[in-house]
Computed example of a mutant assay.
Amino acid sequence: MTKHDGDPSPETGGGVRSVKSAERTIAVLEYLSSADHACSLREVATGLTLPRASAYALLTTLVNTGWIDSDAAGRYRIGLRALRAGASYVEHDDVVQRAQPAMNELNNELGETVHLARLDGAEIVYLATNISRHSLAVVSRPGRRLPSWATGLGKAILAMRPWDEVDRLLPETLTPRTVHSFTDRAALRAELEAIRLRGHAIDEQESTIGLRCFAVALGFSSPPNEALSCSIPVVRLDADREEKVVAALLRARGRIVR
């Protein structure tokens, strides 16, 4: 009997062998989705340590099937099929559906940007965003990924986990996004303990200079995997405003998880 890729593998305890071409295809899609610009063939091949010919074959196949687009200069970016797949994920996600009415109310009440995000590894992924009605507004597209330790959303989720689990989850080096980001594990651990006692997280310009974010974890699972936040430019904040924002977030959480 001939064994094919995908048949149970005795070497892996009855598991399924991975298919290298599929792994590489996924790696290309993830690489392009995380890039902040259209990428050249050389960038993709170098970034994924792929042979140039293999990278070109993968990119050509993905262009021909509509998963990525290419321009006249030979640069590549995520295409419409990937957008459709991502939109379908959000549209059918139960947490997003349950959270959206409360997010709409919170956005109307505060007039500020409201985010819903989920922990994925050591990063948080934005699932939904309601944009501020102010001209100076915070915009984070669904699917955007940021380090959990440098965001209010991420810290709110991490604070609900034992430190040993958090320590294993995080990378060895905590790369900062701004000069205010946590890079020291001991300091981050103390911050997470303070968040657990306080009941909400605060991003003190750790992700974006000039922006403060307040976040609460949503208890759909134990420990939580999702969080809700409100992001506000510091120029529109004072102590009274901060108290109102936190109180509104807690009320919104109650409506969502009820």
Results as ranks from 00 to 15, higher is better:
Thr2Glu: 04
His4Trp: 11
His4Ala: 10
Glu11Ser: 11
Val16Asn: 07
Val16Asp: 07
Arg17Glu: 13
Lys20His: 14
Ser21Lys: 15
Ala22Gly: 10
Ala22Trp: 15
Leu29Ser: 02
Glu30Asn: 08
Leu32Phe: 05
Ser34Asp: 15
Ala35Asp: 05
Ser40Val: 11
Leu41Cys: 03
Thr46Gly: 11
Leu48Phe: 13
Thr49Ala: 14
Leu50Thr: 03
Pro51Asn: 10
Ala57Pro: 07
Leu58Cys: 05
Leu59Lys: 04
Thr61Trp: 07
Asn64Pro: 09
Trp67Phe: 12
Asp69Ser: 14
Asp71Pro: 05
Asp71Gly: 09
Ala72Gln: 08
Tyr76Lys: 04
Gly79Phe: 13
Leu80Asp: 15
Leu83Gln: 14
Leu83Phe: 13
Tyr89Lys: 12
Tyr89Gly: 09
Glu91Ala: 13
Asp94Pro: 12
Gln97Pro: 02
Glu112Asp: 09
Thr113His: 03
His115Val: 01
Ala117Cys: 11
Ala117Thr: 05
Leu119Lys: 05
Ala122Val: 11
Val125Glu: 15
Tyr126Val: 07
Asn130Leu: 02
Ala137Met: 06
Gly143Gln: 06
Ala150Thr: 00
Gly152Ala: 06
Leu158Asn: 00
Ala159Thr: 05
Trp163Pro: 03
Asp167Gln: 15
Glu172Leu: 09
Thr178Phe: 04
Asp184Val: 15
Asp184Phe: 10
Arg185Thr: 11
Leu188Tyr: 00
Arg189Val: 10
Arg189Ala: 12
Ala190Gly: 12
Arg198Asn: 09
Ala201Met: 00
Thr208Lys: 09
Thr208Asp: 15
Gly210Met: 04
Leu211Glu: 06
Ala217Pro: 00
Leu218Cys: 02
Leu218Arg: 01
Phe220Asp: 00
Pro224Glu: 03
Asn225Ile: 15
Ser229Gly: 05
Ser231Cys: 10
Ile232Met: 00
Ala239Asp: 15
Glu242Gly: 02
Glu243Gly: 08
Val245Asn: 00
Ala247Glu: 08
Ala247Pro: 00
Arg251Glu: 02
Val257Gln: 01
Val257Leu: 02
